[in-house]
Nucleic acid binder design. Sequence first.
RNA 1: UGGGCCGUCGACUAAUGGUAGGUCAAGUGCCUUUGGAGCACUUUGUCUAGGUUCGAAUCCUAGCGGCCCAGCCA
Length: 571
Amino acid sequence: MEPLNCQPLPASSARSSNFIRDIMVSDLDSNKYGGRVQTRFPPEPNGYLHIGHAKAIYLDFGLADQFGGHTNLRFDDTNPTKEETEYVESIKESIRWLGYHWDGLYHASDYFDQLYEWAIKLIRMGKAYVDDLSADQIREYRGTLTAPGRESPYRQRPIGENLNLFERMRAGQFPNGSRTLRAKIDMSSPNLNLRDPVMYRILHAEHHRTGNKWCIYPMYDYAHGQSDAIEGITHSMCTLEFEDHRPLYNWFIEQLGIFPSQQIEFDRLNLTYTLLSKRKLLRLVSEGLVRGWDDPRMPTLVGIRRRGFPPEALRNFCAAIGVTKTNGTLELEMLEHFIREQLNHEAPRVMAVLRPLRLIIVNYPEDGVEQMEAINNPEDPGAGTRKVPFSRVLYIEQEDFREHPPKQYYRLCPGREVRLRYAYFVTCTGLVKNDRGEIIEVHCTYDPKTRGGQAPDGRKVKSTIHWVSATHAVDAEVRLYEKLFTKTDPDEVEEGKDFTSNLNPNSLAIVRPAKVEPSLATAAVESRYQFERLGYFCVDPDSAPGNLVFNRTLALKDTWARIEKSDAAGR
RNA sequence: UGGGCCGUCGACUAAUGGUAGGUCAAGUGCCUUUGGAGCACUUUGUCUAGGUUCGAAUCCUAGCGGCCCAGCCA
């Protein structure tokens, strides 16, 4: 057979091999699955997807795609007490947002009937039995990591009795927890998962899809592999902690003689300054430590989206980080790099002033207004230009003026000439302070011959600063985000404390009103911009006409900040 | 201390017995109408000890270190 891996791969994935791709290539070469690659993404609908899932999605969908394969979306809904339909739509929406499309849409619950039949088959084969032990007793009988378990007294129950009892379990004749169906494997196995694992438990609970049809529900281990087999999944990827489950995954498939799906485990994504545990994220939300699941500081996909991370950047990130079986933690900076790279490429530039300082051009006509031509995106000539109104009174950034400039500070200060981006050279001639000694106004003269930003005599200025025209500017609320936690490992805490003690008190700062150029007045929700010299910003869903709200996605890399920092450290 | 998995620059990841390479981070310089972006250069690495081999990150042995497993969660 012609190896499919000879086909050119998409540019984004044209990098070195990884062990999963190697397995796929080898399976294709050996024709193990008739030339097919079929994967699945199996979220449990009990919470929101996070950046860790983005990696799984990238692998499940992306890898299959590279070999012309297919990917199913399968909701792993075997526990009605935890799962809710409200999560289903959000999960689907996040997958679509990331840019992926599933082939089949299934639920583990679609297979409850088949799973039940297979359970009966295993009972008939003498490979499963109904156990009357309580949860506590089962734990006791299971043994420990170092000591073997003991067989349940019900283990040798006759097949007919097992059949009868299991049927009555299903019929609802027994209360929750009173009995289970267990696989009969090996109570002395060093792998705890093989010590007669529970296949079914009694749960008198309404299921979000099957309603009250069932009161017994399959466990993950009994449901997952068989669901894979039913769908003809060839490569079933999951995270490392399931390695110990693989022998069980294979055991059910072998006993049942069904399609031999194979489970492949990879390393979960860990990021510095980031928590990716559903339980802890839930605490942040329920205790009001963030504003919700889609708070832009959250690592959830809905949060990241609201923050303004482009989906393409996430895909590039996943492609770059690779996949292995090594447990590690990625530096957040790696993620941020791919966000900036994408945004630099696609975000239109605009001017906005976060902390306005009035600048008056004393030699400019009182009511003069000019439309200055500005480039929308220097990285993309096709993005064209726009007009930005200029007038006598402007706002500049407070940070861009110093009465007493430190060394290496190139921005505006008394006597210094700088360029106003896309406008004129201006020279500071004076300043005005209030009673408290704060600078409230800067006075400048402009050189009319430098219109557009070039001096005909060829003289240079050391810096260019951004501005908005005071009369034309639009007010906006700007939400500035920083890392949610102060420690690279948010779980690193003193005795008696938990991760909430590592919350960064400055993770959200609201600036209001910021002054933005008028072209932003009609900016659509979710559209992404670069505020020149400041960073990348996007329009928050809270935004409305006349009430603009922006989120800072990420600040630009700031060489000056680094100079200041190392300067302070050096002193 | 039963079992499983894993150890390559500060971080992540390639090299599939044959030149230890890439990305991020850090640093230096160039360039610049964003102190952005870009470009160039630089620093740092095969857990340890033996062994096999002409040749070992790769194979073998023994250590050391890390992660996971005792839910009727997934």
